[in-house]
Each structure stands twice: as C-alpha cells, then as structure tokens.
Design a protein around this nucleic acid. Structure first.
Length: 597
RNA sequence: UGCCCGAUGGUGUAAUGGUAGCACAAACGACUCUGACUCGUUUUGUCUAGGUUCGACUCCUAGUCGGGCAGCCA
C-alpha cells in the first residue's frame, strides 16, 4: 500500500479528475499535462492543502507532467514573505522522494517574457529549470502581462472602468434571487476606459474610487457573472513587487490568466469555486488566446474529525496563543505534523486513501492515525523508554553487574539488526505495568506474579516497598536468568512482557505527550471552536530512555516499545537533554474508551 | 427562496446499464518476548417516489435532505 505513494511503478489511484486527465491524454489535447498548486501566502499549509498537493503532484507524476508551485499573491494586504518561505519548505518536504522531479520552478527573479505564438502576442512562460537559483511561481510576477490582458479586454469592449463605490457596487449587484442593475458607467467608450484604466495604474485615484469590471450580464443567475471586478486600487506595498503597483487584479482575473501563462492544462480547485468556472472560461475565451486553454475542475476539500482545516481559524489559535505557533505539534499544519514526527509518506498515503470526489463529507481521523501507524510500524527504530518510572530491584543480580541483552531494532525489517541493552540490578519499569490490586485479565506485574522483561528475562515480584505515606517506592523481584534468549528456560511462557531501562545506564529526557486539540468531532460546528479546545492536549513528563537514544536526531522515526511512536523535537531540546514528541500512541485494544492519540 | 453542486454500511470510497466491492472503525477469535504487527470470522449500505429498460447505485422526472454563491478576500 505504501508502495503506491513511494514507487513510480505503483498503480495510481483513480478518481473523476484523473479520469478527465486520462481522456485528455488519450485525445492528445495537450503536449504535456501541467497542474499547479496555488496557495495564497497568508498562512501555513495544513492537511487540507496536503490533499490538494498530493492530487496535483500525483497527476503530474503519473502523466510525466509538471506541477507548478505558485504563490497566489494578488492581495498585498494579507500576504507575507514569512509564509512564502514556510510554504516552499512544506511543499518540498511533502513531495520529497516522490514527486520532486515534477515540481515546476522558474529562474529566480524571472518574469514572463513577451513572445509571439501563432502570430499573436502571448506571454507563455517556458518549462521550469532545475532547483539551483530557482524559485516558485508568483502570480505577482504576472502583473505586467495581466495589465496588458486587461487593456486587451477593454479594447474588445468587454471591460469597463466603474466609478461606483464599494457600497454602491454591492447594491447594484442585486441578490441571489434578484437580478442586479447595470452600472451607470457600463457604457463608457473604449477610449475613455483605456484612459481611466491607465490613470488608475498611474496612481491618480484613491483606494476604492474606481475599479475595472468585466462587462457580462448584471441579470445573470450566477452572481459571479454580474460584471465582476477585475482590478481594484490599493496604494499598498506588495511583499513581492514592492511599490511598483497601486492597482491589483482580483482572484478571478489573475487566476485563469496565471494558469494560461504557465501553460497549465488542468486547474484543480475546491468546490466553492464551481460558480466561478463560468467566469474563468469567459475571461479566457474573451481574450482570443492562441494556445490551448486550461480548464478548471473542482473537488471537495478535506473535512477531518476533531480538527480544524481552515487557515483563518488556525491563525486564530496561533494569535491567541492556544498553541505555540503554526508548527506546534498539535497543529494540523504540514509543519506541525513534520515536527511531531509524522512522515510525509503517511500524509501522502492518507491523501490517497480518502480519495477525490465532489461529496462534502467528514473524514474520520482514525484513518489518518492508521496511515501514520502503518508507515511508522514499517520504518521506526524500536527503543526502550519508560515514561512514568517506578524503580525495580532485581535482588539476585549483584550491584555493578551489567548483563548484555540483544534487542531488535526493527522486527519488520527483512533482516533485523540488534543492539545491546544492559540489564542491571536496579531498573525502571512503567508505573502502569505494576498493579498491587490487578484488574481482571491483567497480564503485567503484580505481587507474587511473573512477567518477562523485554529482551531480558522473566522476573517474579517478591516485595512491594512503600514509604510512610503508603506510596510505592520500589519493587523487589528475582530474575530467572536462565529464561534469557538461548538459556535453558528461554521457552518459558508468561502472559505478559513489559519494557524497562537500566536505572544506572538510562538517561533522562523530556517527553511531550499529545492528545487531540479539540474534544468534539466538529470543533466549529457551532462557530465557537475556541470553547472546544482540549485542556489536556499536552502533557509533559520526564522519562528514562535507553542510552542508544542519545544519538537520536530529528526526522528519525522511533518507537518506544509498547508505548507509541516518538520523534526528537527539532526546536525544543537543550544540549545534553533531548525533547521527544509523541507522534502517536500504539493502538491499544486493552484499555477501553476513546482511542488515544 | 434565484442559480450551482452533491447523496452507496458508523466513516471515507469503488462499481460508468449486468453478482454492491475495498479501506478505516467496531466486535469476536488465533498468534505473540510490543495487549503492537499479522491472520481469521462477523455486523452494517445504494435518500424517497415515479419512469425508461430483459435488467438501474448508474439514465430521466419530481421531491427530500445536505453544501456553496450576494468581498474592491482567495
């Protein structure tokens, strides 16, 4: 299954959009399949974007095509370079080793050069160069050509400069069930429109004083065809173009033409743009463009149980300091998942598993958790760590003696390797693995009971030592050293096996245990997601970890045996003391109740 | 109530006029030096009503329910 997202030879998933692409390929409608992923740099990418990235890059790689990363940055007021950098990093991480060869980049600083196609002016931007000195595409790099397109549209009598105020424009637009009215400026001459538009660009008018609008149909049942705005005046500096422009194109105008300029064939977006498709096509067709036109297709965005999939709301969590930042391991952002230890392949596998449809459903988080565990089970190095330590003394092992035990690094490997862990007189075991009064079917250690220490031997609990307050201080046990692997009692069966670390050889580490950020399946169903934040989404413990873990590095998948999957936090550690994030717990079919995260 | 989109087990998705299948979840069982993994078994589904057809999840009509659209946001 994982092959499907890691191997180029693996069968691709099928969905209605891929069916359309396949038809276009069969009909040879395009020389090359080119998709794009067009985030607005006004926030970090989240799991919903991951779905879109996997779709767009997946289609590109399955068809020997290309997928352009394009900053959809036509609104200077909301965007920032901080987001541009984060988006690039997140996309590259997500597609690394899978579709990075399909990533469209352009030479740094390049803008589309005017050229002629079929004897007509065209602005086609050629194929992407290699990654050196390259950068993603920016819609703002097309402001020049876009302006020319607008001039062409005016020349064709299909756009006009409108002097209505924002409020008046809204009134003239009508409502869904009532047609709009023509703007009094709709009949301006081409010459006057040309002059006024040039003066808008020259900065002669204040913000909102005039706008450029398409001349379509104010009575259209589709609101997006009621003379939609194409350009607005904003005397605001732009993060990518500086103060070069004071008029900025709106999404509908910029997007279809950016697609065209880049040679996009399939422009895939979410369902809320279905109504805009008529405008997308109208603009492209009105311009009489020489090359094959891109087409827009829409799919349902991801809705995930117990999580927020909205940049705006995630921004709120950051601003109100409910999380430590966009990359807080509890955040459903790509950066958050990465920091938490979720492998990119697991996110890709999830994207494939949920499919692509036009049905607006709610995906069970359990599916995400499943793909994470599936990937981690394959790849994670097994290690011993005790999260909530209780001291245990093996009374028949002399102090100072170290018994070397071979521990398997990953039993899922074809040829598993081992490492040595030292068993000593004093060890730590998990507090949960001892019960003075055991519940029914308790397989772990209890007074007078036996349990196997993983990779070591069977022990028998002889005595429970308590302090004056009645709290357990330590457990005294005897070890059956003959029950070690290869020993005469190696085949001895006990019901339970527990993990442990040497008290003298282990080291301390901070471990952060995460639970879901929200305690209801649809956090914003009532519009009050802040009231559904799980107050116990983070628990910090000081754990004892086996010495081999001192060499662990961020990005390395680890399993603390019997506990879950963990990863070194790339940001939080201090020299000499590592911090681990629990990526996800192991599936627990014994402890009842809601699935732990 | 104008236009648009959608509806298949608990959840997500397949079947494109010919046996309703897969994954997740759940339950039970086997195995186990991870109560994990793996394996086996089981439960549960085509929104409603008409129509077309030898045959409808699929096509048509109407309805029901859900979602989207009235930013100079994307």
């Amino acid at each position: 299954m994982t092959e499907a997202v890691t191997s180029a030879a693996a069968p691709a998933p099928a969905d209605f959009i891929r069916d359309i692409v396949a038809e276009d390929v069969a009909a040879r409608r395009y020389a090359k399949i080119v998709t794009r992923f067009p985030p607005e740099p006004n926030g970090y990418l989240h799991i919903g974007h991951a779905k879109s990235i996997c779709l767009n890059f997946g289609i590109a790689r399955e068809n020997h095509g290309r997928c352009n990363l394009r900053m959809d940055d036509t609104n200077p007021a909301k965007e920032d370079v901080e987001y541009v950098d984060a988006i690039i990093e997140d996309v590259q991480w997500l597609i690394a080793g899978w579709a990075d060869h399909c990533l469209g980049f352009k030479p740094k600083g390049a803008t589309p050069a005017a050229q002629v196609t079929d004897g007509r002016p065209d602005f086609y931007l050629g194929a992407a160069p290699g990654p050196d000195g390259a950068e993603p595409f920016f819609a703002s790099d097309y402001f020049g050509p876009l302006y020319e397109f607008a001039v062409t549209l005016i020349g064709k009598g299909r756009a006009y400069v409108c002097d209505l105020s924002p409020k008046e424009t809204e009134e003239y637009r009508g409502s869904p069930d009532k047609p709009g009215r023509d703007s009094p400026f709709r009949t301006r001459s081409v010459a006057e429109n040309l002059d006024l538009f040039a003066r808008m660009k020259a900065g002669e008018f204040p913000d909102g004083a005039r706008s450029l609008r398409a001349k379509i149909d104010m009575a259209s049942p589709n609101i997006w065809l009621r003379d939609p705005l194409l350009y607005r005046i904003r005397h605001t500096a732009h993060h990518h173009t500086g103060t070069q422009w004071c008029i900025y194109p709106l999404y509908d105008f910029a997007h279809c033409l950016s697609d065209y300029l880049e040679g996009i064939t399939h422009s895939i977006c979410t369902l809320e743009f279905v109504d805009h498709r008529a405008l997308y096509d109208w603009l492209l067709e009105s311009l009489g463009l020489p090359r094959a036109l891109p087409h827009q297709y829409e799919f349902a965005k991801l809705n995930l149980g117990y999580t927020l999939v909205s940049k705006r709301k995630l921004l709120q969590l950051v601003q109100e300091k409910i999380v430590s930042g966009w990359d807080d391991p509890r955040m459903p952002t790509i950066a958050g998942f990465r920091r938490r230890g979720v492998p990119a392949a697991a996110l890709r596998q999830f994207a494939y598993a949920i499919g692509v449809t036009k049905f607006d459903g709610l995906t069970d988080v359990a599916l995400l958790e499943h793909t994470i565990r599936e990937e981690l089970n394959r790849t994670a190095l097994r290690r011993l760590a005790v999260l909530k330590p209780v001291k245990l003394v093996l009374t028949n092992i002399p102090a100072g003696e170290v018994i070397a035990c071979d521990a398997t690094n990953n039993p899922q490997d074809e040829n598993p390797t081992t490492r040595s862990v030292g068993l000593t007189r004093e060890i730590y075991i998990e507090a949960d693995d001892f019960a003075e009064v055991p519940p029914p079917k308790y397989f772990r250690l209890k007074p007078g009971g036996d349990v196997r220490l993983k990779y070591a031997c069977i022990i028998t609990c002889q005595e429970v030592v308590k302090d004056a307050a009645g709290r357990i201080v330590e457990l005294h046990c005897t070890a059956d050293l003959d029950s070690r692997a290869g020993g005469p009692n190696a085949a001895r069966k006990v019901k339970g096996t527990i993990h442990w670390v040497s008290a003298t050889q282990s080291i301390a580490a901070e471990v952060r245990l995460y639970d879901r950020l929200f305690n209801v399946p649809e956090p914003d169903a009532d519009g009050a997601f802040l009231t559904h934040v799980n107050p116990h989404s983070l628990e910090i413990v000081t754990a004892r970890i086996e010495p081999a873990l001192a060499a662990a590095a961020p990005g390395q998948a680890l399993q603390f045996e019997r506990l879950g999957y963990f990863a070194v936090d790339a940001k939080a550690g201090t020299p000499g003391r590592l911090t681990f994030n629990r990526t996800i717990s192991l599936k627990d079919t014994w402890t009842k109740g809601p699935a732990p995260k």
